[in-house]
Design a protein around this nucleic acid. Structure first.
Lengths: 249, 249
DNA sequence: GAGGGTTGACCTCAGTGTGAGAACAAGCTA
DNA sequence: TAGCTTGTTCTCACACTGAGGTCAACCCTC
């Protein structure tokens, strides 16, 4: 039997029914704090609980499914600008039997990073969605608390060795804005002078626009220079976090 | 309707049929070269092609499915010793429509690291499995070439900041054996003196057994000291790869 | 419009980690 | 025994980092 004949006679019903979903850990920074997008579930199971936005995968790639869910839940449409600058990457998959009481569900989790996005639109599908500071997130539906924790770990680690922080700011930004991203994600302040030296010394991290901001910060200081994201995909040498206590190993 | 009533009336057949598989990128080092475990497919589709070992997920966790597939394909049984020391971690998931010509298949890929394992047992299910040097792998079935490439990237990166290399050697090892692991995975020699200094200076990477090997290497030299893996889960500071050419970014 | 406080950009200095090379003795093979 | 290989330890120059200071631009209040 050749492969064509085999495929024509193949019966897909011979395998156990499994559903595949995508769940998105969407992170943004508002007012200097790291926020995650959550929805309030209207339907069972876990009706009334907060959860990560997500849904069943249709006839599309996993990446496309994640982007679609994000667009639906924020009320933003791809092509509208804000969503085009979102950085999206796969986090990992979760598939313990029993993680969804309905049936066997494998969830492919995604991580999204975006510059400050508007509040989800009232009246749309996204009416039940909102941004929540990550340190105020309480219980979540399913195993979403673990998914969020894994996403935060990944985000914190990737700031070290990739230019990911530039995904949280606009197309032009100041060094101080970039430093605020690191401070919000890592939860600790960084030495301004050393950060400045480091960012400018890593090849391809940022490039100068030659411009300065039209005005200084609210509380004074000189007009800061503006930068764009550079073309580096990895930071060499890396921008390491201040040493965690040695015990963490 | 409360949640219990909802679940009792729930019909799992309302979702598109999707199959979930696990595929395993199992790596080991033999004769100083990095090898990957491959199988020769007996059944359609891709009959006769080489592929990563894998199969459909049953009523088990994803991790358990990966370990089961690895055991079946190597002919080793969990509890037999060798398999208990295997390090297994999830790599990522692949789910493009069309990646399997039969139906929609989501594959959760795993990465396994093991000390030199025996050849798969002839006569068992694993008769069609064999270790292949990674630089001699040609075309693979499905999108397995991309999966393997992602696995190698991950393995190479993790050597830098985790004590993963100790998963490729036995319970007691010499610094030179550890250096050979790095050389095999990274594909380049490391300065022996600097490597030695570095490994001993990173807290928790290795700990001395106080013993020396019973004899020196085949070509002479003093009897090397023996070490065990330490308790560190991350290397601080990291053991960085020799700088790739700057252009790679 | 003068003054105090804040900030961006830059600099210095000491300490740490790294790459490259060399020294030396133990142990192998011929 | 001779000659070579290898494990272990040093040395030295250089790069990077953390901590702190300097200075001028700029905001706000008085």
């Amino acid at each position: 039997m050749d492969e064509r004949t085999f495929l024509e006679g193949y019966d897909p019903a011979g395998f156990p029914a499994v559903a595949v979903t995508v769940d998105v850990v969407a992170l943004t920074i508002r007012d200097g704090r790291l926020h995650v997008l959550l929805v309030e579930r209207g339907a069972h199971p876990f009706a009334g609980w907060r959860a990560l936005p997500g849904g069943f995968v249709r006839d599309e790639t996993l990446d496309a499914a994640a982007l679609r869910e994000l667009a639906e839940e924020t009320g933003l449409r791809p092509g509208e600008g804000a969503l085009d600058r979102v950085h999206l990457e796969q986090l990992r998959s979760y598939g313990d039997p029993g993680r969804d009481p309905r049936m066997r569900v494998i969830s492919v989790a995604y991580l999204a990073f975006a510059p400050s996005l508007p509040d989800p639109r009232p009246g749309s599908d996204a009416a039940g969605a909102f941004w929540v500071p990550v340190d105020e997130v309480a219980e979540l539906a399913f195993d979403h608390a673990a998914v969020l924790a894994d996403g935060l770990d990944r985000a914190r680690a990737k700031l070290e060795y990739t230019p990911l922080a530039t995904a949280f700011v606009g197309p032009e930004f100041t060094i101080a804005e970039l430093r605020a991203v690191y401070a919000a994600v890592w939860g600790e302040e960084l030495h301004a002078g050393n950060f400045h030296r480091k960012v400018l010394s890593v090849p391809g991290f940022v490039e100068s626009t030659g411009e300065t901001a039209p005005r200084a910060g609210e509380r004074g200081g000189p007009k800061p220079r503006l930068y764009r994201a550079g073309d580096a995909r990895l930071l060499h040498p890396a921008l390491l976090r201040p040493a965690r206590e040695d015990g963490i190993r």
